[in-house]
Amino acid sequence: MSFEIWLTYLATVLAFMITPGPSHLLMLSNSMTHGFRPALATAAGDLTANALQMLAAGLGLAAILVASQHALEIVKWLGVGYLLWMGMRMWRQADHAKSDMGAARSASRRALWGQGFFTSAANPKAVVFFAALFPQFIDPSQPFVPQFVLLSVTYLIVDGTFLSTYGASAGWIAARLKGRATAFVHRLGSVFLIGAAFMLGLKTLRDA
């Protein structure tokens, strides 16, 4: 793979990342309510799911997912429901945010990782996306594995950078809000989660 082709791929990924997706909104929410450092587990969960999706695309499993349309729809709507439930629960708990802030910030990193992983995995068509994207930049005259690894690592680094930037910004703002403002932080985080659910649901309806 030439450097010029890699730069074109990088520009494509950056353009794709410009609009925040459900995982980015989840990162914003968790950084505001739990702090940036704990929320890095959310980013790790998202990137883990992405890595598995890219591996599945590389192994040719995209065709299986496309064929299993019914199972695909079920997984996607489960993801929508999960995000919506988390958002509504956070909104209801906003009035108790001040007294519960310590508990919120001590949330299990395993739970935060699971949220990031499930939110990304709830979009199984990402496998199809990677299966369609990668061949555009892979030179068939060169070994497949090194090119596949380079494309995958590049995507993960870019996505991780965006997630960290969103999370650090949200964490910085939340850390400077005290007292009653913590309820506002929870409600804003709730809006991000419900927005993520809406985005996933809209995409599911559009793809149907």
Rank of each mutant, 00 (worst) to 15 (best):
F118K: 03
Q136H: 08
A107W: 07
A174M: 11
W85Y: 15
A62I: 11
D139K: 02
L78K: 04
L84I: 05
R110S: 07
T165R: 07
M90Q: 13
L14E: 07
A168R: 13
Q136N: 06
V145T: 12
L151N: 01
I74T: 10
P146D: 05
G21I: 05
A67P: 03
L151Q: 02
A67W: 14
A197Q: 07
L25S: 01
A208Q: 13
A11K: 13
K203A: 12
F162H: 03
A132F: 06
A196V: 06
S152E: 00
R92F: 09
V127L: 11
I74K: 10
L83W: 05
Q69S: 12
P38R: 03
F129M: 13
Y82R: 05
H24E: 11
L52D: 02
E4A: 14
A132S: 12
P38K: 04
V158G: 00
A51G: 00
E73P: 00
M17A: 14
L59T: 05
L133F: 10
V149A: 11
A97P: 00
A181G: 02
V66L: 15
P22M: 10
A43I: 07
A208V: 12
F117P: 00
P140K: 09
A183V: 06
L112F: 06
M101W: 14
A103F: 06
L10S: 04
Q93N: 09
I5Q: 07
A44W: 13
L193S: 02
L202C: 06
L65A: 03
G114W: 15
V158E: 07
M54E: 04
L65G: 05
K98F: 05
A107T: 15
W113C: 01
L205K: 04
W77E: 03
A63L: 14
L84S: 03
W172P: 00
L83T: 02
M27K: 03
A107F: 06
S29K: 03
D100Q: 14
M32N: 03
M88E: 12
A44E: 11
F118H: 01
L163T: 03
A97D: 02
Q53G: 02
L163I: 09
S164K: 03
K125V: 10
G102D: 11
T33H: 08
A97N: 00
L61V: 10
A175T: 09
P38E: 09
R109A: 05
A15G: 13
S120Y: 03
H186G: 00
G114K: 08
V145W: 15
N123Q: 12
R92K: 13
L47W: 07
